[in-house]
Simulated assay, not measured.
Amino acid sequence: MKFLSIQDSYQIVIILLNISEVNVSDEKICVTEIEIVSSCPVTEQEYNEAARRKHCSSMKSTCTNQVEQLEYHCLPNAWGDKLYEMCSTDKVIIGNSCAEYNERGQRIQPNYERKCNGVNFGVKCPFKYFANKSYLYPGCLTLSHETTSKSPGKENSTNSHPVPIDDNDLPFFVVYPFATLLIGLVLVAIIYCIWKR
């Protein structure tokens, strides 16, 4: 019994690899001037004041081949226990998810674990929005551990290198592509075995 041709199997593998590639090699996001802060702006006026203070609009991206304007962002980390403000190229957030700053990857990304469209959320976010507009969704900017103590000297300190984090939890954008690739390889092996019979 012939299940799929070899050509069909190769096409499946290529599609799976392309899916993995899309998730791994997301567009280059330039993040700089990273600081830990005690709160983020939750109104347009507060956002504009913070953006003027940080001077992001006067900076240009040097992380990509294209010259892009940097914009002010203020976001929680993936665990929701710290808030960071930074200058960054903008990132589209999809999936009715809050935006987060990934400390290890030094990138802005959706937090798929923290949906911002639930009944108890307050101002709900749309399916797709830009991360610099996170101030419109204040529920995304609350700390999950309000009693988290700050280390002396850490608040408002500028970091130009990755912030060390616990290795126990791998970020979603790392696990998903490799899981997809592994599943794809297992499927190809099964299809190959069936085809050989």
Rank of each mutant, 00 (worst) to 15 (best):
L4M: 15
L4V: 15
S5E: 06
I6W: 13
I6S: 10
I6V: 08
D8A: 14
S9L: 01
Y10V: 12
Y10H: 11
I12R: 08
I12H: 00
I12V: 14
V13Y: 04
I15G: 07
I15T: 08
L16G: 03
L16T: 09
L16I: 13
L17G: 08
I19V: 11
S20M: 02
V22I: 13
N23W: 10
D26I: 01
E27I: 09
I29K: 09
I29A: 13
C30E: 10
E35W: 10
I36S: 04
V42P: 00
V42G: 00
T43P: 02
E44V: 10
Q45Y: 14
E46L: 06
R53I: 02
K54F: 03
C56T: 01
S57A: 11
S58R: 05
M59P: 08
M59I: 13
K60F: 07
K60D: 11
N65P: 05
Q66M: 13
Q66N: 14
V67Q: 08
L70G: 03
L70P: 01
E71F: 14
E71Q: 11
E71M: 09
P76Y: 10
W79L: 15
G80L: 04
D81W: 06
D81E: 09
K82F: 15
L83R: 05
E85Y: 02
M86G: 01
M86W: 00
C87K: 00
C87R: 07
S88Y: 01
V92C: 04
V92A: 13
I94F: 05
G95S: 00
S97V: 03
C98K: 05
N102H: 03
E103I: 04
Q106M: 11
I108K: 00
N111W: 05
Y112Q: 13
Y112C: 12
N117K: 05
N117S: 15
V119D: 15
F127G: 08
Y129M: 15
A131R: 03
N132K: 09
L136Q: 02
L136H: 05
Y137L: 01
P138E: 06
G139L: 01
G139D: 06
L143N: 01
E146H: 09
T147I: 06
K150R: 11
P152H: 08
P152T: 03
P152E: 10
K154Q: 13
N159S: 11
N159M: 11
V163W: 07
I165S: 12
D166I: 07
D167H: 12
D167P: 14
D167N: 12
N168A: 15
N168F: 15
N168S: 14
L170R: 10
F172W: 13
V174A: 10
V174L: 12
F178H: 04
L181V: 11
I183L: 08
I183R: 02
I183D: 04
L185M: 03
L187V: 10
L187S: 09
L187Q: 08
V188E: 00
V188A: 05
V188L: 02
I190T: 04
I191S: 09
I191H: 05
C193P: 05
